[in-house]
Computed example of a mutant assay.
Amino acid sequence: MKKILLLISLAALCQQAFAQAAEKAAQQFLRTLDTGLRAKVQFSWEDAERFNWHFVPRSRKGLPLKEMNDTQRAAAYALLKRCMSNNGYTKASAIVQLEYVLRALEGRGENDDYRDPGKYYFSVFGDPAAGKPWGWRVEGHHLSLNFSALENKWMAGSPMFMGSNPAIVPDGPKKGQQILKEESVLAFGLLEGLNDQQRKEAVVAEKAPADIITGNKRKAWLQEPPGLGYAKLSPAQQQQLKVLVAVYVDRYTKLMADIIWKEIADAGWENVHFAWAGGHAWGTGHYYRIQGPTFIIEYDNTQNNGNHVHTTFRDLKNDFGEDMLKEHYDSAHR
């Protein structure tokens, strides 16, 4: 019993240290900004802008990379790096740089403003030094990462969206680059290994939806998960599914990922389902969803002849830190 309590205490201390480090990184970023830039980047915690997220090219609030100097950009990226695993940070950074590739493939000029890696916006919600709820977001075309924190104790990172157009770069200096390769290859491997009966249950539609179904909804909600249940997979297939889920969960820091893994396990892997729609080969429109009581993963590749990927991870309890905040407020009013 003492050993269990010690492990719990150590986990809490590690989580607190991580939240404090993220808070410090946010403070350092804000300190690099003058009054005008800080007014662009910082919103109150209660501001509805916190929930105004999307992953398409559009007008955005916040401070874009192109309006930052080198010191400010370095501080902004340091905050991002603090809240992601190395793999997650690498993917996010590569998505930003992919705007150069898309600009060239679409034949736009070097000064084009539509496909612009400088149009990724950083926003901070609340005061990361106040000991109260705060959060931050980085967002642009094909990237939306939303983080929420509370009193140096917890940090949540959902919704998380990562996309890639092109999914596989067809030409130029970056030819063959596939930023979200694991998300695609591992899912096809799982599908291909299913027997006829399993595939009959897993494939829920012959045509893939035009995009991820949850979109940019304020709350992710879908009906009871369709598809093939975890219990109907062989042990080897169950491991394949877990490896695929890990591609999404392990984009976060280890401490954040450990919390998500525990929530999935506590809710029961037997309640997780894998569903597929559309084509069974690359180059045809396809979609999959992995859904459990605590999370939804969606992957859609239907645009540009099946070479344009959208992926999302939604924490059904803790989008925008809601469960974290509810627990805090409930405890405060007991």
Rank of each mutant, 00 (worst) to 15 (best):
D330V: 14
E46S: 10
R108A: 04
A220K: 12
Q178F: 13
Y121G: 03
L222M: 14
G285W: 00
G193H: 06
C83N: 08
V247F: 10
K207I: 12
V101Q: 09
R115C: 02
D112R: 00
Y287N: 04
R218Q: 15
M68W: 04
C83Y: 00
Y299Q: 11
L228R: 12
V56F: 14
A208V: 05
E49H: 03
E224H: 12
K40Y: 08
A130Y: 07
E139S: 09
K91I: 12
L7N: 03
G193T: 13
A277Y: 09
F51S: 07
F161Y: 10
R103W: 06
A17Q: 03
A12N: 06
F43T: 11
I259F: 08
D323Y: 13
A220T: 15
M256P: 07
R137A: 06
P166M: 05
Q303F: 08
G193F: 04
D113S: 11
Y329F: 14
Y100L: 00
P225I: 14
P64S: 11
Q15I: 01
A76L: 09
L255P: 03
S148Y: 02
T311P: 02
L79P: 11
E99M: 00
A149W: 00
F51Q: 07
G279V: 14
R82S: 14
V124H: 04
E322W: 05
I296C: 12
K181T: 02
E139F: 06
G229M: 08
I259N: 08
P226V: 04
Y121C: 05
R251G: 00
K207R: 12
L255K: 09
